[in-house]
């Protein structure tokens, strides 16, 4: 698990993205979700998807919590039998995107060319154009998708939806090699990462 922070002062809450590699098993979503709900922690965003490896699933879970809480949550998740590996990262460590859809009345869009320009400036594109409504799509960070809501609101925004966050860890080399290690009866040291290896300086001597 990443983010070694050995300061003793109380930590501030911040956004963490938890990445979980799992078997594709019915019931596992619930098993993971209740680790949060038991501690009354709100999940801001949750995405499950296939990973780069067939049969291995990948969860992205976003929470606003202290690093200490996130580390404990991650360990509890990793303890589940069908979970292979858990990583947690701050926003600096990841590339992430969310997708949003906006439905607006076509007549207003057609009338007001400025709208189209606004959309182009915001990286949006039309997915469907019908007589009665048009659906735009944009992908980006929360601030970007939020900005477009504010822009479209005056033009009769009918419907809005945003997807969960999907995130790629910048310094990850994927899971293929790790999985091969997991499949061995005696996995090597690098998959059984011991985060305490970096804690050497904290070890007390008299």
């Amino acid at each position: 698990m990443s983010n070694q922070n050995n300061t003793e002062k109380p930590e501030a809450k911040q956004e963490f993205t938890i990445t979980v590699y799992t078997e594709n098993q019915i019931g596992l979503l619930n098993r993971i979700a209740i680790i949060f709900t038991r501690r009354k922690i709100n999940i801001h965003s949750l995405n499950t998807s296939p990973s780069e490896i067939e049969s291995i699933h990948r969860f992205n879970i976003v929470v606003q919590e202290t690093e200490d809480v996130v580390r404990k949550l991650s360990r509890q998740i990793e303890k589940q039998v069908e979970v292979l590996k858990v990583y947690f990262n701050t926003n600096d460590d990841i590339i992430w995107q969310e997708m949003a859809l906006y439905k607006v009345p076509t007549d207003i869009i057609a009338e007001k060319a400025s709208v189209e320009r606004l959309l182009r400036e915001n990286g949006a594109r039309a997915v469907v154009i019908r007589k009665d409504y048009t659906v735009f799509e944009t992908t980006g960070h929360r601030e970007e998708t939020d900005a477009l809501i504010r822009i479209l609101q005056p033009f009769g925004l009918i419907e809005f939806v945003r997807s969960a966050r999907v995130a790629i860890i910048k310094n990850s080399d994927g899971f293929n090699r790790k999985l091969r290690e997991f499949e061995k009866a005696e996995p090597g040291e690098d998959v059984v990462e011991n985060e305490y290896l970096n804690k050497g300086q904290r070890i007390f001597t008299m």
């Binding site: 799992t22 078997e23 039998v81 069908e82 979970v83 292979l84 999985l179 997991f182 499949e183 009866a185 996995p187 040291e189 059984v192 011991n194 290896l197």
Partner: peptide, 14 residues
């Protein structure tokens, strides 16, 4: 059964 790939009953001893 004596191995499940996603399950490590014993952490490696360091």
């Amino acid at each position: 059964c004596n191995h499940i790939r996603s399950y490590r009953p014993k952490p490696l001893i360091r």
